[in-house]
Each structure stands twice: as structure tokens, then as C-alpha cells.
Design a protein around this nucleic acid. Structure first.
Length: 1099
RNA sequence: GGGCGGGUAGCUCAGUUGGCCAGAGCGUUCGCCUUACACGCGAGUGGUCGUGGGUUCGAGUCCCACCCCGCCCACCA
């Protein structure tokens, strides 16, 4: 069955010429565009749910965290998407049906803000003067521009997204999901209207959610204001304190004097000794003239010079401004105080929003809060009512995360999602994997069953998630913006009493809808009634698609507000898959069934509260307790070299496209992957290129060099193969796979623990449901199966062992999302093991040894496969060459589309797909099926190939070679000057086992067991002395002497350490015997080495 | 104030359950255009592992306290 395909010799020669024609440096720009086009044409990134549903393939799905359409992608996006692409590509190669869903986020407030700014900077009119629809159209233009740009950037990075399914959080599909979700929540009583203090952004003039507020340290001041005491009529009054002194005013301390206009009380702690004297008294607000009570409230901090910050600054009297401070609002509720709002939505002082007793305070009207502060202070000072200013006072103040101005606590009517309900926060909390729950959560009612298999990587982030739900507050979802999903609620004010003098019944809405001819039992709407001073407001929420109902409400105004952008983001796992109409829409056949829950969410930690939590809450609510994803991988945040956040305005940002241009996409990806450790931040030193003005980082050079190294190692490998392939091209040696001729080195018959196949991320959580599918992915190997391991030269067996080790290590790293280990393993495998040792070792022999060529082929094959997810372009480019060389009859015109891989029995047609056999007929099969690396199989570790004993032997050899090179270098001998090694018979025999490798690598002309004649350079390995002759002339003896002196000193130090350890009775008595034994051996060895060197020094 | 992460070579970072002389890349020094790669090859130099205690025969690793840096949460008296 082992026929050799007849391969035209001239084709072989052509292949050899093609390899020779490869440039000596990898130039990414020569390849990336072409490779991208090939992927595109092959359509290999398009997921087909039917392949999952038919039971053939296990699913693997990743949802992109949709980038905001506010601007172009930055380096953080590059990291985020590189890591996702790595996961997706690995799983695609493993035979999973992979879906990476791309898309963008409309980013309501952020986008509206940047567009407003741009319009103004281009001389346009402010938003308020625009027609709403026209403005939204303008934003839409911006969105189209940036969506296209972002998509292009992702493609340039090599992201293997399913572009045909790209979504936008405000497209029709997502809009339908938003309407449906809102309606269902409304119906379930989880959405309600409330008049509360909200986080108000006076610049964008909208409410913000709690987590859209960022705290910033500001330098402020404490102002001490005097309020004259009076009685309830406003007549001046005095209080007599316990110490007998009289008091005609109170002094309040505040950082916000301008809010005094809205004060409706002054509070004192009931435990304050002065409290009884003030009982029943009032104060008169200066200028305003408002008479407000002194109330007792234990919230008030009593002054204490030794106490905390508050106590040190406190006077014991607290001005209470319910409309402009959350705590004051609470005090106001407790004491039933009036609420006086003295500000307009832009935070200027205004009497139009709930303030009528202006008095003489009209002088402040119209001022900004900043100017009002100055003026209030000045007016108090001129009236001798300013007791003191203590500055600076450093404190943190909430700022809008978009406009960056201080947040104004502002009383307004807003829509809230009651996330404090057990069905939302509770369900989200219970979704957490039990292994990551602290057990202390108030939400853990185990009588409610949900899927609980949401897992965080690294697991510490589970605590962030958990803590968030413990203290969560209702989510304000209405935004006073134009860019976003309009709230589907129509409201009407029902004023006064019903006709006929009757009180209206509990369902005034009945009259409203009856009048409109709407069936009261129509399930497509639901209502909520809100009591207000001016009457009753009835809110009608209309289900999506009920256009006739909307028409009937046409005379009632729809809520002008839009939803918080995170509302639609929270639905991302559902809306991207076509929920809620997935079943009825041709566009989404089987998507939800096939790919939900998704495999992993890959994001940065700042998004855990904003997004992750809300996705889980909504998903568990809308999808019967199902989690939206099994794993949440939180990757580090990239900072600049000084640990500062990268930002455009700070000028320390790095543009991914610049790096792709200068270094190539693969170089960027490799470097970024190497940064992705388990820590929370990583630093990337940023340097500015003075010529171009472009920011870059020396870190990316590593990736560039690495790609170049791969390119050249591949070139060399292919030359070695191509040269020799002009004969039969096939080894005469054939064997069966999986039958190691080499005895199991460990003697245990099992591979080391770490080498065992670990379930991949997706495999583990799909384990139950996808059991059958799992078996459909058969194991494969990287072994050059046609040659028995035992007949390969030792150096080749060593290389295969290193390959096997690398595969297992990468497998483990991927399972725990340790991308840096993956990258580092590839670096060591390619650079150190393959290039530095294996290629160098086989150079003299490989041309004449087909078995060694097979090893080279297997090595390159495995390296390309393993590296492809990190560096898809360069590996794919080399693969083109590699496969066409292996199969010179390429160009058949067969599209490089693989028909369903791994389908069927699981008995291994897969083996036929490996080009790494010596059996070229097998390779042909693969060639016909596909020559795209991105859909070629992922290597699995072959335990038989791992030979730890051999690796240990070769480590010793490597040490020997380093010592020889060191000696050569130290005595200043020419690098290529051959030397003779004089060694022990045992070592000579071991060297012989490696068949010339050592002689070649260490530049030896001979290995001898004889005594050397003439001057030598000597060194010791273990306790044996080795000498090199033919290297030094008498004149170099001084250098050799100096080198020996240094070795001697090092050895003396080591011996002292070991002796000290052994002279410690505690050590010899209590340490494990094998360690003590080992230490004794070491000491003996060091002493022997020392003696040998001393002898050579003539002592 | 509560929580989390970090402090290891000049720089950026690894260091798995405590156990040979603490590693890598970059930088730097010396020598090399050696049958792919000068984006390269070979060999060096370089560390009181933030500080102080403790546990242990043995601590970068475990415990306690403290000092810096960063992040998250809470807080405009």
C-alpha cells in the first residue's frame, strides 16, 4: 500500500527554485493582503450551525465585545481581538464549528458627544438647534464611517470573524431584541418610573448610571458659612448653650457653597451637647431669606480634631440640600423636608425648576455653578457671614465618564430597571460557578435553580463580580439623548377626577384605551401608573411589532428619551443570534440552538460591572436561567512605560495600524500575546519616532524578529527537503504509527501528568451536552509516521520529544488562558530548540538522510500549525510554499475548501490530512482537500514521542557544548578553529551515540580519550575533567590561567555553601533523605572539579 | 474607609505545591558575514527578590506588620 507517487522531477526542481527565490527577510506587506483574500474567498470563517445541530461538530463561539463607533481601534482593542482570534483559530483547527461574531456598539452618549463636538468644530450649529431626525442621521453617517474603519482594522489584524453575520447594536435585529426585552421586563414589573436623585451630566444633559461615574481627586476648599438663628417667624433668636454662652448663628461647613440656595434645613446630631439648646429653633438663609428648621439627625458627624477627615473639618452643623446631595436627600426624606431644586439641566442657577422663594437671591440666577460658588462666597464675605475658608481640601468628586465634568446630583424622573430584584441580580449571582462563590452572598437561595457554570479567569475577578451584585442599586436606564434606542413607552397625564364627580377607579387607563378602541386584554401592551402632584401619569409600553397600537397612541407623546447604551449591549449574546425571532427568521437558522451559551467572553476588567453583569442578568432572565457564556477571560490592560493609561489626548497611545505597517500584523500579535499574563496591568514602553511622529514600542521588535526567524528557518528547512526530494523523495523506511520502538523512558508507561490531554476551554464545558461530538474529533499526531522512532538519529528523536512537550504545554496554557506561556513556548520551540540546536545539529547530515528530512518536515509542520493562531499570516504564507513543495502538482484549481472535517466515525481519515508523513500519497489527499493552514488540524501531543530520558541526556550534551564554546571564547581562540576534546571513555561513547552532532556544534576535529600533548584549555562537567587541545598557543596560557582562577573561585564559593548546608544538623536530620544525598554528591563533584582545576594551575 | 493586583537584572516581565548557584527578552560588553536568518550566530556582564519581623533544616515562594505604585468599590459636610 505504500506506493510512491510519481512526481515529475522538474516539478521538484521548480519547488526548490521557488524556495530559493524566497527573499531572505520576511516582509509582511508582501503577504498579508494576499493571505487575507485567500481566507475570504474560501469562506472558512463562516460558521454553519447545521454542522453542529446535525451532531457532527462541537460548537465554539466567541462574541466580540463590540467596539464603540466613536473612533478607530487602539492597542487595547488589538490585544483583546488578538486573544480572541487565537482562541477561535485554535478551536477551528481542533475541528470545532467556530463562530466569532463581530459587531460594533452605537455607544449612545459617547458617540453623540463626539459628533456634536465635530459639528461644532466644523462651524455647525449646536445640537439643540437641530431637528432630531436630522441630527440622528448625521450621527448615523459618522457611525457608517467608523464601523467600516473598525471592520477594516480587524481584518488587517487578521481576525477570523464571521463577517457575514456582523451586527450593530442599533440595527434592526438588535432593535427588535431591545423592544422585546424592554416589554418583557416592563410586563414583569422589573422596569419602573422613579423621581430620584440621579447622576446628572450637565454638559451632555443626561442622567448617567452609577458605574458611568468616575471618581477623581480634586483640590477643593471647605467653606464655613454662618446662618443666623431665628424663630419660626424669622425673627432673630439666640440659643443659650450648656456652658452659658449665647449663640445667634450656626456655622455650617461645606465644599459646595452654591447649593446653599436649596437648603431646607440645618441638621445637628442629637448627641451633640448643643442640640437641646437649639430645639425648635430655625435659621434664616442669608440673601434668600428662607426660614428653615434645625433638625436632629444622627447622620451628622460631630466635630473632633482627633477624628477622621470629616470630623476634623466638621462644625457639627450640616446644611441639608435635598435636591443636590444624595445624603441630604435621605435626611430630607426622614424629616419630610421640602426639596428645592435651584439648578437648570445645565447646572446653572435657575428659578425655573422647582424654586420659588428666591428673595434677594436673584443676583445668582443664570450663573454657572462655578461662578455661583464664587459669588456666594463673595456675598457671604461682604456680609461677614463667611467664617473661614480651609484650603486646599483634597477630595474625590464624581465626574462624567464622557464629558469629564463633575456630576451634579439632580432630581429628575427616570426609568429604572430593578436589578435589585432576585430575578436579575440574584440570578446573576447564582450563575457563578460554585467553585468561585464565596458562599457569603445574600443572593444564594439554592431553592432557585439556575445554571451555575459561569467561570472567571483569572478567578479573582469572580469576587469583583460577586461584590458588585451584593451592593447593586437599581439601574437608571433612561438617557436624555437622541442617539440610541427610543424608550417604547407612551405616557399620558390623567389630571383631576373623573367625570360625574366620581373618583376615578383603579384603572383610569381603561377609559383611555376604550376611547381608542383598544381591547383591554390585548397582550401587546401593558401599563404602569405613576402618581404625581399634578395628577396621575399612565405609561403604556407597547410590544414590538404592534404598529396598529402605536398608531392608536399617536396623539400621545412617546417618551423622548433613549435607553442607556448598555441596555442593548446587555442583550448582545441574544440579539446577535437573532433573538427573539431567531426561529422565524431565515437569517438565523439554528444559531441560538447551535451556539448558545457561547464559549468564552474575552474582555478587560473595567467592563465586569458595566457589561458582564448585565449580560448575565438579562440572559438568565430571558433565556430561562441560561448563562450567556461559560468563561469570562479578563485580560490585562496595556499601559505606557510609566504605568499610565494610554490615551489619544495624553499622546501616549499606539495605533495598531502603525505597528502593522512597520512590523506586520503577526509581529504585533505575537508581542501582544506575550504580554497577556495573569496580571492586571502590563506596561509597554512607548517611543516616538521623530521622523514620522508615530508612536511605537521597542517591544514589537521581538515579534518582528521572531517572524523573520520563522521565515528563514522555514526557508532553510524547505531547501533541505527540496534538494533531496529530486530522487524518490520518500524514505524507504516505513512503520506503523503509535508503536514506539524506543522504550518508554519513564518506565511507567504513562506520560507525565502535565502531558496528558487537558480538555480545552470549550471541551470542558461542552463535555456533557457535546459528548458525542467530542469523540468526533479524533486524536492526531505529529510523528513522522513512516519512520520508526527508534531508527531515527538521537538528535531527531530529541527534536520530536521537544515538539511533543511544546504541544502539551501549549494545550495546558490555552486551557487556563495563559497566552504569554503559549507565546513563550513557541519562542523557545522555534528559536532555541529548532533553530539553535536541531537545525545546527543536522546541517552536515540532513541532505543525505531522508529520515532526518522527515524530522525537519514534521518539525516545521508542527511549528506552523502551533504558531498559526498567534501569527496567522506568516505561517499561512509559508504553508503555501511548504505544501506546494511537498506536492508540486498544486494549482489544480480546486478551491481550498475542506469538506466537513472530522465528520463521521472518528476513525481517522484525519491521518490522511497530514502532510508530515513520508507517505506522499497521504499528503496528496490532504492537498486536494485543502491547502489552507487555518483549517488544517491542530496537533495533539503524542506521548510516545516524548522521551524525557533522552532530553536529559541531551541537556548534558548541551552543557558540554556550552562549556567548550566558553573555553574557546575565553582563551580567545578563533570561533571556527577545530579543537580536540580529551575526555573520559564514557563521555566519548555518549558523544559517539550522537553521531557527529557534538563535533559539529562544538567545532571538534576529534574526540579522544588520550592524554593531550601541548597546551590545553580545561573545564569540568560534573566531576569529570575535560581538556581541549589544539586551541591555544603558549602565549594564550595567561588567558586560560585567568579563566581557571575564576572557575576556582566560583567552585570554592559553591563548596562553602554546600558544606555549610551539610554541617547543619537540622538539615541532615530533617530534610528528605534524597535531598541530603544529592547535596553530598554535589559536594563531592564540586570538590573533584576544584581539585582538577587546582592541578591544572599547578597547585 | 473596604477590596484586589503589583513592587524580582538598567528596562519589560516569568518564577507551578517552599528544595541544585533565582530565569527570559531587550539593553550592555567581547568575539564572529560559521552551508537559512546581521531582524543573525557564539560567549559574557548584571539581582541585599519593596522594608522589618516570624514559621522552617531550608523562604522570591507560607504567616504578620509596614512602605510605595496602580485598579475597583464606597464617600462632594
Amino acid at each position: 500500500m505504500t506506493t510512491t507517487p510519481d512526481t515529475p522531477t522538474d516539478s521538484r526542481d521548480a519547488a526548490a527554485r521557488a524556495v530559493a527565490a524566497m527573499p531572505t527577510a520576511y516582509n509582511p506587506a508582501d503577504h498579508e493582503g494576499r493571505i487575507r483574500a485567500r481566507w475570504d474567498e474560501a469562506g472558512v470563517f463562516h460558521a454553519d450551525p447545521s454542522r453542529v445541530l446535525a451532531g457532527g461538530k462541537p460548537p465554539y463561539c466567541v462574541l466580540i465585545p463590540p467596539p464603540n463607533v466613536t473612533g478607530a481601534l487602539h492597542l487595547g482593542h488589538a490585544l483583546n481581538n488578538t486573544l480572541q482570534d487565537i482562541l477561535v483559530r485554535v478551536h477551528r483547527m481542533k475541528g470545532f464549528e467556530t463562530l466569532w461574531m463581530p459587531g460594533t456598539d452605537h455607544a449612545g452618549i459617547a458617540t453623540q458627544t463626539v459628533v456634536e463636538k465635530r459639528i461644532l468644530s466644523e462651524g455647525g450649529k449646536p445640537r439643540i438647534e437641530w431637528d432630531r431626525d436630522a441630527f440622528v442621521a448625521k450621527v448615523q453617517e459618522w457611525k457608517d464611517e467608523y464601523e467600516a474603519r473598525i471592520t477594516e482594522q480587524l481584518k488587517l489584524m487578521g481576525c477570523s470573524c464571521d463577517w457575514a453575520r456582523q451586527r450593530f447594536t442599533m440595527d434592526d435585529t438588535c432593535a427588535a431584541a431591545v423592544r422585546e426585552a424592554f416589554f418583557r421586563l416592563f410586563q414583569a414589573g422589573l422596569i419602573e418610573r422613579g423621581k430620584r436623585l440621579v447622576n446628572w451630566d450637565p454638559v451632555t444633559r443626561t442622567a448617567l448610571a452609577d458605574d458611568e461615574v468616575e471618581m477623581r481627586e480634586v483640590e477643593g476648599a471647605f467653606y464655613y458659612l454662618r446662618y443666623p438663628l431665628c424663630d419660626h417667624t424669622g425673627e432673630p433668636a439666640t440659643a443659650v448653650l450648656p456652658d452659658g454662652s449665647a449663640m445667634d448663628h450656626v456655622t455650617v461647613a461645606t465644599t459646595r457653597p452654591e447649593t446653599y440656595l436649596g437648603d431646607t434645613a440645618v441638621a445637628i446630631n442629637p448627641d451633640d451637647p448643643r442640640a437641646p439648646a437649639l430645639e425648635g429653633l430655625f435659621v434664616r438663609l442669608p440673601i434668600v431669606g428662607r426660614v428653615i428648621p434645625v433638625v436632629e439627625d444622627s447622620y451628622v458627624v460631630m466635630p473632633d480634631p482627633e477624628g477622621d477627615v470629616k470630623a476634623r473639618y466638621a462644625t457639627g452643623f450640616l446644611k441639608v440640600t435635598p435636591a443636590h446631595d444624595e445624603n441630604d436627600y435621605q435626611i430630607g426624606l426622614r424629616h419630610d423636608l421640602p426639596i428645592v431644586n435651584v439648578m437648570a439641566p445645565d447646572a446653572s442657577i435657575s428659578d425655573k425648576h422647582g424654586w420659588s422663594d428666591i428673595g434677594d437671591a436673584h443676583i445668582f440666577l443664570g450663573l454657572s455653578r462655578e461662578d455661583a460658588r464664587k459669588k456666594v462666597v463673595a456675598e457671604f464675605e461682604s456680609r461677614r457671614l463667611l467664617a473661614e475658608i480651609r484650603a486646599p481640601y483634597i477630595h474625590s468628586v464624581g465626574h462624567s465618564y464622557r464629558s469629564h465634568v463633575p456630576i451634579e446630583p439632580y432630581l429628575s424622573d427616570q426609568w429604572y430597571v430593578k436589578v435589585t430584584d432576585d430575578r436579575l441580580a440574584g440570578a446573576a449571582q447564582r450563575a457563578l460557578d460554585p467553585s468561585q462563590q464565596t458562599g457569603a452572598s445574600k443572593w444564594l437561595d439554592n431553592s432557585i435553580t439556575t445554571e451555575h457554570n459561569l467561570k472567571f479567569f483569572p478567578d479573582r475577578y469572580a469576587r469583583t463580580y460577586e461584590a458588585w451584585h451584593e451592593n447593586i442599586r437599581d439601574w437608571c436606564v433612561s438617557r436624555q439623548l437622541w442617539w440610541g434606542h427610543r424608550i417604547p413607552v407612551w405616557s399620558i397625564l390623567w389630571s383631576g377626577t373623573a367625570r360625574d364627580g366620581q373618583q376615578f377607579d383603579s384603572k383610569p387607563w381603561l377609559q383611555i384605551i376604550t376611547k381608542r378602541g383598544i381591547d383591554k386584554d390585548d397582550p401587546r401592551f401593558c401599563t404602569q401608573v405613576e402618581g404625581r402632584p399634578e395628577g396621575i401619569v399612565i405609561h403604556f409600553c407597547i410590544a414590538p411589532g404592534a404598529d396598529d397600537l402605536e398608531e392608536k397612541f399617536a396623539d400621545i407623546s412617546q417618551d423622548p428619551d433613549v435607553l442607556d447604551t448598555w441596555f442593548s449591549s446587555a442583550l448582545w449574546p441574544l440579539s446577535t443570534m437573532g433573538w427573539p425571532y431567531a426561529g422565524q427568521d431565515e437569517q438565523f437558522p439554528g444559531l441560538l440552538e447551535a451556539f448558545k451559551p457561547t464559549s468564552v467572553l474575552c474582555t478587560a476588567r473595567d467592563i465586569i460591572t458595566l457589561w458582564v453583569s448585565r449580560m448575565v442578568m438579562f440572559n438568565t432572565f430571558f433565556a430561562d436561567g441560561q448563562v450567556p457564556f461559560h468563561h469570562v477571560y479578563i485580560h490585562p490592560v496595556i499601559q505606557d512605560g510609566d504605568g499610565k493609561r494610554m490615551s489619544k489626548s495624553a499622546g501616549n497611545g499606539v495605533d495598531p495600524l502603525d505597528i502593522i505597517r512597520t512590523h506586520g500584523a503577526d509581529a504585533m500579535r505575537f508581542t501582544l500575546a506575550g504580554l497577556a499574563s495573569q496580571t492586571q496591568d502590563v506596561r509597554l514602553p512607548v517611543e516616538r519616532d521623530d521622523k514620522t511622529g508615530v508612536n511605537t514600542s521597542p517591544k514589537f521588535d521581538l515579534g518582528k524578529r521572531f517572524c523573520n526567524k520563522l521565515w528563514n528557518a522555514s526557508r532553510f528547512t524547505m531547501m533541505m527537503i527540496a534538494d533531496s526530494a529530486s530522487g524518490t523523495g520518500v524514505s524507504p523506511v516505513r512503520t506503523r504509527l503509535g508503536e514506539p520502538c524506543h522504550p518508554d523512558p519513564s518506565g511507567t508507561g504513562v506520560p507525565p501528568v502535565r502531558e496528558q490531554h487537558q480538555p480545552s476551554t470549550a471541551e470542558s464545558h461542552h463535555a456533557d451536552a457535546q459528548h458525542t461530538a467530542q469523540r468526533a474529533v479524533p486524536p492526531r499526531t505529529t510523528a513522522p509516521s513512516a519512520v520508526p522512532l527508534g531508527e531515527l538519529p538521537l538528535i531527531d528523536r530529541w527534536m520530536l520529544s521537544r515538539l511533543s512537550y511544546a504541544i502539551s504545554r501549549i494545550e495546558a496554557a490555552l486551557a487556563s488562558y495563559e497566552f504569554n506561556i503559549y507565546a513563550e513556548t513557541m519562542y523557545d520551540l522555534l528559536w532555541t530548540d529548532f533553530c539553535d540546536w536541531h537545525l545546527e545539529a543536522v546541517k552536515p547530515t540532513v541532505r543525505a538522510n531522508p529520515a532526518q528530512q522527515a524530522t525537519l518536515r514534521a518539525s516545521l509542520d508542527t511549528i506552523l500549525r502551533l504558531l498559526h493562531p498567534i501569527a496567522p499570516f506568516v505561517t499561512e504564507a509559508i504553508w503555501e510554499q511548504f505544501t506546494s513543495q511537498t506536492l508540486p502538482d498544486s494549482g489544480t484549481g480546486v478551491p481550498p475548501v475542506r469538506d466537513q472535517p472530522h465528520s463521521g466515525t472518528g476513525v481517522s481519515p484525519v491521518r490522511d490530512q497530514q502532510p508530515n508523513h513520508l507517505d506522499d500519497s497521504a499528503v496528496s489527499t490532504s492537498r486536494v482537500k485543502s491547502n489552507l493552514l487555518c483549517i488544517t488540524d491542530w496537533p495533539t501531543p503524542e506521548p510516545a514521542m516524548r522521551d524525557e530520558a533522552l532530553e536529559a541526556r541531551f541537556s548534558k550534551i548541551q552543557e558540554l557544548i556550552r562549556l567548550i564554546r566558553d573555553a574557546r571564547s575565553a582563551v580567545g581562540a578563533a570561533p571556527r578553529k577545530p579543537a580536540t576534546l580529551h575526555t573520559s571513555p564514557a563521555m566519548a561513547a555518549e558523544i559517539a551515540e550522537f553521531a557527529g552532532v557534538i563535533e559539529s556544534l562544538a567545532v571538534l576535529d576529534r574526540v579522544s580519550t588520550d592524554e593531550p600533548a601541548g597546551p590545553v584549555a580545561s573545564f569540568t562537567l560534573d566531576s569529570e575533567e575535560h581538556r581541549l587541545s589544539g586551541l591555544i598557543a603558549e602565549t594564550d596560557a595567561d588567558a586560560e590561567r585567568a579563566r581557571l582562577e575564576k572557575s576556582l573561585a566560583d567552585l570554592d564559593a559553591a563548596i562553602a555553601t554546600l558544606e555549610a548546608r551539610l554541617s547543619n544538623p537540622g538539615y541532615t536530620e530533617r530534610a528528605p533523605a534524597h535531598l541530603v544525598h544529592q547535596t553530598r554528591d554535589q559536594l563531592d563533584a564540586k570538590r573533584n572539579e576544584r581539585d582538577a582545576i587546582a592541578r591544572n594551575l599547578g597547585r
